[in-house]
């Protein structure tokens, strides 16, 4: 269990993490999602006691990380893949880490097997690929068989098999009742792994909810309509919470009304409707909508005609979550 209360980190005039409060529950995988520079890594570093908060506090398993007597048994963290002396072998790195807690060499060998590092364990870390570095980082995180695990961008640099492995590992750890906190900027990855999402942008929490709620919350019944006289439909439908967008002369997107009411209105007004498609938002779209205003480094389209809101209006069929 990780509990953050009004956690804040300022670097000079810049606020990287802005008074965030959240709880990461045991028994499920919680995704920590946000664009680059949103404050994910800074938050994780504060959880692990590497950065001192400018305000607020964060506790893990009941107390600040640094106050635990055997911290590696409480929390295992992969913060960055290559937090390792490159001239040392993976095996010796693990041995040095294990020694601080009196963890026996047998456990070192176990995590080497578990993470599939057996073939390279005696080699110097300098020659490791990013993916092997990630595996070593995860091996370190698992050394103490901790109740809580924190992985910062764990699938970075992993091959597809490795990505699957991390996914299963995270799910298995959660199924054993552990607290699993994963950060990512890839919503598709979170959709497959996480049960619960905390979405962060510009140092603030934008959403903190079960993953399905986030998808649902962002997709108020949106319907795409093709009709011969769209304007005649919109008048009778107008009302609270209903908005529409004319995409083409005969193509509309209506938000806030269910398809049946649109069909009834069309029948009554004699408008010919030849497409009526309910749109479901993917997690990716939900995420884009949530974080759009919060992206720190936004890329701009090269085309001068493309409006900033394109993402809101692209059709989303075929991208079901």
């Amino acid at each position: 269990m990780i509990e953050a209360q009004t956690l804040t980190k300022r670097y000079g005039a810049k606020t990287a993490v802005d008074s965030i409060s959240f709880t990461v529950q045991p028994g499920k995988v919680t995704g920590f999602l946000g664009p680059n520079g949103a404050g994910k890594s800074t938050t994780m570093r504060m959880i692990m006691g590497l950065d001192n908060p400018s305000g607020g506090q964060v506790i893990v398993n009941g107390r600040p990380y640094a106050k635990h007597k055997a911290p590696l048994h409480e929390v295992g963290a992969l913060l960055d893949a290559k937090a390792v002396h490159t001239k040392r072998s993976a095996y010796n790195h693990l041995r040095a880490m294990a020694a601080t807690h009196g963890i026996p060499n047998s456990r070192v060998n176990e995590v080497i097997e578990l993470t599939g590092l057996g073939a390279v364990a005696k080699k110097r870390v300098a020659g490791f690929s990013l993916g092997m570095g990630q595996r070593l980082g995860i091996a370190v995180a698992l050394l103490g068989d901790p109740q809580t695990v924190i992985f910062d961008e764990p699938v970075n640099g992993l091959d597809p098999e490795g990505v699957q492995w991390v996914r299963h590992l995270a799910r298995d750890l959660a199924a054993e009742g552990r607290t699993v906190f994963l950060s990512s900027h890839l919503m598709s990855e979170m959709a497959l792994t996480a049960d619960h999402l905390i979405v962060i942008g510009r140092g603030r929490i934008i959403a903190d909810a079960p993953i399905q709620d986030i998808i649902d919350g962002q997709s108020k019944a949106r319907v795409r309509v093709r009709a011969d006289r769209p304007q005649d439909l919109l008048g009778p439908l107008a009302g609270d919470g209903v908005s529409s967008q004319v995409l083409e002369p005969e193509l509309l997107e209506i938000t806030g009304v269910d398809p049946r009411r649109i069909a009834e209105t069309a029948l009554r007004t004699g408008v010919l409707v030849y497409e009526l498609t309910p749109l479901q938002l993917s997690l990716e779209d939900a995420y884009m909508q949530l974080t759009q205003a919060e992206v720190e480094y936004q890329s701009h389209s090269l085309s001068p005609t493309a409006p900033d809101t394109t993402q809101l209006t692209i059709p989303v069929e075929g991208r079901r979550p």
Partner: peptide, 18 residues
Amino acid sequence: TTTSPSPTRHAPRPSSGI
């Protein structure tokens, strides 16, 4: 996985710690 998570504490082994 959300079914019956067992929030058992994996208590630190008595021999372990800094």
